[in-house]
């Protein structure tokens, strides 16, 4: 992973474990996030993709200290915040914010939107009334709304507008990082793009970094600088987006990309598709060795036995896959080099 200057956010060896009730008294550990290393630079967008249950939302929440990690360290602007508490944690929180899929997760339906946006200012800044009002109007204008919307309730807005209001609230305290958790997933294409363009403009203006969690890979390709792919709680591949989308090094990344139907009928018909067999395994009982081996079209005997170590990929990033070092020995090359051989 590249580290220009010092990253805004850096996580090393992050583990999150939930205790899940099984039966009446028994509680078993579910390792939702396992040894995750990631970093996000200033003004950079890291896309985090993976299927439901892969641990991407849990990762986002653990980075913000909304969930306590079991192991690992989290650094914000070089400062270890893993064990921050009290006033220190409050200071951390104002520098990292979150935007959810459902804007009602951050907007109180019984509160006019001016108050919702003003709330973080009240908690952290205590501005005089006139300054506070001015700041709220500024924030609304940043998201292409205006002062005349101040006294309206969330239900009076369209879905896209509500998401813009949630963004105004998230940027109220000039955060260093915003975690966007499926922030545009519930919107129609036409409004989705308005919100994406807004996020990009805010990033240019304020230099905010994003962790952009999403399942829509075309949206991630557009908005991200680098991408991390999660499977069963682990990062299986990371890299600059063009390298990762054009030359995926992990068979799971290749399969995810292949599963996206392209809105172009002739190209879609002509594509060679990889349809993975079976479901994502139970996270309570993950497969041995490489956790993807049960669904991997290229699995070798070693994959059942040994956990793959991260390998550097030509063109940037890392991958955890035995194909890199054994069998076809891609040695940093893309998995697409062997696709023909295996499927043919």
């Amino acid at each position: 992973m590249t580290t220009e200057q010092s990253p805004v956010l850096e996580a090393r060896g992050l583990d999150v474990t939930f205790r899940v009730r099984r039966g009446l008294v028994r509680r078993v550990p579910l390792r939702a996030v396992r040894s995750v290393d990631l970093s996000i630079g200033a003004g950079e967008t890291l896309g985090l993709v993976g299927e439901s249950g892969s641990g991407k939302s849990t990762t986002g929440r653990a980075l913000l200290r909304l969930i306590e990690p079991e192991r690992g360290t989290i650094r914000l602007d070089g400062v270890d915040i893993t064990n921050a508490s009290g006033a220190e944690l409050r200071a951390v929180r104002r520098r990292m914010q979150m935007v959810f899929q459902d804007p009602y997760s951050s907007l109180d339906p019984s509160m006019v939107i001016g108050e919702s946006i003003g709330e973080p200012l009240d908690v952290h800044e205590r501005l005089p009334a006139a300054r506070r009002q001015q700041r709220i109007i500024e924030l609304l204008e940043h998201v292409r709304l205006s002062g005349r919307h101040l006294d309206r309730y969330p239900y009076e807005f369209s879905g896209g507008q509500r998401q813009r209001i949630a963004i105004a609230r998230a940027i109220a305290l000039n955060p260093r990082l915003v975690v966007c958790d499926e922030a545009v997933s519930a919107l129609d294409v036409s409004t989705q793009n308005q919100v994406i363009n807004l996020l990009e403009r805010i990033q240019r203006e304020f230099g905010i970094s994003y962790l952009f969690i999403a399942h829509d890979l075309a949206v991630v390709r557009h908005i991200a600088d680098r991408v991390a792919v999660m499977y069963l709680g682990e990062l299986v591949e990371t890299g600059p987006k063009d390298r990762l989308f054009d030359r995926p090094a992990h068979p799971y990344t290749e399969a995810l990309l292949s599963a996206v139907p392209i809105p172009d009928p002739q190209r879609q018909r002509a594509r060679e598709r990889i349809v993975l067999q079976g479901d994502v395994p139970d996270a309570l009982n993950p497969p041995s060795g490489c956790t993807f081996h049960t669904r991997c079209p290229y699995a070798m005997p070693v994959c059942r036995e040994v956990v793959p170590e991260p390998t550097e990929v030509t063109g940037g990033g890392m991958v955890r896959c035995h194909l890199q070092t054994e069998g076809p020995t891609l040695a940093g090359g893309p998995v697409t080099e062997i696709s023909g051989r295996v499927s043919g």
Binding site: V189, N193, I196, E200, A218, R221, H222, I262
Partner: peptide, 12 residues
């Protein structure tokens, strides 16, 4: 308006 999987769009 569709974002493209093979990239290449500056502004959506």
């Amino acid at each position: 308006a569709l974002p493209q999987l093979d990239g290449g769009t500056e502004v959506l």
